[in-house]
Amino acid sequence: MIDSTTTGNAPPAIRTRGLQMSYGTNRVLRGIDLEIARGEVVVLLGPNGAGKTTTVEILEGFRHPSAGSVEVLGADPADAGHAWRARVGIVLQSWRDHAKWRVRELLEYLGGFYVPYSGAVARPWPIDELLAAVGLADDADTPIGKLSGGRRRRLDVASGLIGRPELLFLDEPTAGFDPQARRDFHDLLASLSDLETTILMTTHDLDEAEKVASRILLLVDGGIIADGSPDTLRRQDFGKAEVRWFDGEQHLVHPTDDPVAFLRGLLTDPEATIEELEVRRNSLEDVYLKAVER
């Protein structure tokens, strides 16, 4: 996955070695080795209880691992200072404070903390630009308590972005988004990635993971069992293909291990009507469910 030609000599955004975590006798992480280059959009997938949140919280510096080493943006998150924290953005699952504040007031307040850490990167992100980027331009003066669920979530995302982070952690950022808001958010992630922002995101939406991830990590029982681009993971287990077509009278479906051979046969008949031809392969969801069942 990590190719020295694409990452050059820049140190990775995240590097862990033998990361372990136990709560009492309960081993939650069983030695995680991980390297995430700058600019990658990594989606961490896994069933509930797999260790996703624990992993992310260690990387954020909120938890100390039982064993192993962690380096995030060149520092150990457990004892990194404010200057380091200013380069990291975090969007938690949800927070429901400040109902009476207006959107702009909250962002201005949060942005104030980043002023001392402005340098090569201008911090904080100018409020109006940020509001436009997350699609909240019309809600600058709306009291937070009056925002709809999806708009409230956009504000959560804006709060994580206000300091123009180099590394952004997102915990299920699109929960409660309608399809349009989700698409807008994916566009936002793509533009952040263009700015070399490294993104580590958890989600349960596999369709979303397939769309936004440059790389997917599949965490099961405290270990990484798959690591690769969405396409690589899909190709590991293509399964049977399903060929579907319309023969002028009915829609037909045929499962086959060798769609190429089947299609050769189907298409050589010059008299046959074949319309709406489609070959369907395993989706990432199918691959995920199989991997998790194992």
Binding site: R244, Q250, H251, L252, V253, H254, P255
Partner: peptide, 9 residues
Amino acid sequence: GEYSPSLQL
């Protein structure tokens, strides 16, 4: 009945 199976299926 939206799709019919191929004969083999």
